[in-house]
Design a protein around this nucleic acid. Structure first.
Lengths: 203, 203
DNA sequence: ACAGTAAACTGCACTGAATAGTTTACTTGG
DNA sequence: CCAAGTAAACTATTCAGTGCAGTTTACTGT
C-alpha cells in the first residue's frame, strides 16, 4: 500500500530541499551561496542545478511548497447553540497554533527576506494570505447574522483580532525577538483577545 | 544667528548622507553598491570613503542619526479632570502620527533590513524602543491609579494598544503594502482603538 | 545471475559579473 | 598654497552558473 520507492534522484532532491530550507532560514537567501548549500545537502553543486534551474527557482519552489503545507488549517464554524466566548476562544486558539507552527514562521521569514525589496511581488503573494485569514471573518459574519454581535465592519473587526494575535505571537517570532510561546501563553493570548473583542462587540 | 557656513566638505558629506538614506531605503543596504551610492551623491567614491570608513560605518551612522530624529515625540500626560475617551484618543493620535512619519518608517525599514539576520543585535536595539513606548504606559498607570480603569497588567494592556495601532498603520507601511494613511484614517484608527480598549478596561 | 545501458551524480576547473575598498596622478576652490 | 575632491584603474574576493570527463545507480533483457 505504502509507496516505498524513493529513487536516488528523489533522495538527492529532498536532501537539497531540506538543506535549502534550513540554510535559507538560518543564513538568509542572500547569505547562502550555492556552494554552501550543496555542501550542506551533501550533493554536488551540479546536482543542485540539475534539479533547480537557478537559485531563484529554488527559492520560489520552497516558498510555494511551504505555503501549501502551512495553509492546511482546520478552522471551525459558528455554532448558534453555544457560548460566544467559548467558541471564539477555541477558534483563536487554533489560529494561534497555526501561526506558531515553526514551518509557518520559517516560511514567513524566508518570504519576508526574499520579498522585502520587491513590494509588488510581495503584494501579490499577500493576496493568497487573505484567503487563509477568512476563518475568523466567516465566524464573525455568522455571529452578526445571528444577532449576537453588534453591527460592525467585518474587515475592521477581523483585522483587530488578527492584529492583537499577530502582535502577540507572530511578529516577535518573525523577528526572532522571542521563541514560540508556551501552551499557557497561547491560551492566555486567546483568552484576553476574545474577552476584549466581545466586550466591545457583543450584542 | 543662523550658522550659514556649510563648507564644501560639509556639503559633500550631506549629499552622501542624503543619497545613502534614499538608496538604502529604495534598494536595501545589500542592494546598494558604493559605486551606485557615489554616483547618486554626485561625489567620487573616494570622497565617500573619506567621510565614512566603510559601508558598515555609514549604515550605523544613518541608523543612529535617524534614530535621534525619530524619537522626539511629545507625549501628553494623564489629566484627572477630563474625559478618558478624549484623552486616550488624543494620545493615540499622537502615537499614530509619530509612527506614520516617513522618517520613522524609513528608519525602521533600514534597520529591519540590516538587522533581520542579526537577531542578537536587533534585540539590543529594540531595547531602546521600549523607552519610547512608555507614553501610553504612563497614561494607563495614572488612570489606573486614579481608579478610572480596572486593575490590569500594564505591559499587556499597552501591548494590546500598540498591537492594534501597529497592525493598522505600521506593519503595512513597513512592508510597503500600503502608503501612509490619510488624516481621516489615522483618526478612525485612534477612535476605534480607544473605544475597544475602554469598553474592556474602563472602570 | 549478469552484462549492457541510460540516466543521474560527482568533482573540479572555469567564466563572468559584482562589489568593497585602495592607489595614483591630477584638479580645484577658498 | 593646500586641503579636499576627482576619475579611473587596480586588487582581491565572492558567487551564480557552466562544461566536462569520469563514476555510480537502477533498470533492462537474457
Amino acid at each position: 500500500m505504502s509507496e516505498k520507492k524513493p529513487t536516488r534522484s528523489e533522495l538527492k532532491r529532498q536532501s537539497i530541499i531540506d538543506a535549502a530550507k534550513q540554510a535559507f532560514q538560518e543564513l538568509g537567501v542572500q547569505g547562502t551561496s550555492m556552494d554552501e548549500l550543496a555542501a550542506r545537502a551533501q550533493v554536488s553543486k551540479r546536482t543542485v542545478y540539475n534539479h533547480f534551474a537557478s537559485k531563484e527557482a529554488l527559492v520560489m519552489y520552497l516558498i510555494s511548497d511551504l505555503w501549501q503545507q502551512a495553509t492546511q488549517s482546520p478552522g471551525c464554524d459558528y455554532n448558534p447553540g453555544s457560548d460566544l466566548y467559548a467558541q471564539l476562544r477555541a477558534l483563536l486558539e487554533l489560529e494561534i497554533k497555526t501561526i506558531c507552527n515553526p514551518q509557518y514562521i520559517d516560511l514567513n521569514r524566508m518570504a519576508f527576506d526574499y520579498f522585502f525589496h520587491q513590494p509588488d511581488a510581495l503584494r501579490k503573494e499577500m493576496e493568497k494570505f487573505k484567503a487563509h485569514e477568512t476563518g475568523v471573518q466567516r465566524w464573525i459574519k455568522s455571529a452578526v447574522a445571528d444577532g449576537r454581535l453588534t453591527q460592525l465592519d467585518v474587515e475592521v473587526a477581523s483585522g483587530q483580532i488578527h492584529n492583537l494575535i499577530k502582535g502577540g505571537c507572530f511578529w516577535p517570532q518573525l523577528l526572532q525577538l522571542s521563541g514560540p510561546p508556551t501552551q499557557a501563553e497561547q491560551v492566555a493570548l486567546a483568552e484576553r483577545t476574545t474577552a476584549m473583542f466581545l466586550s466591545y462587540y457583543q450584542a
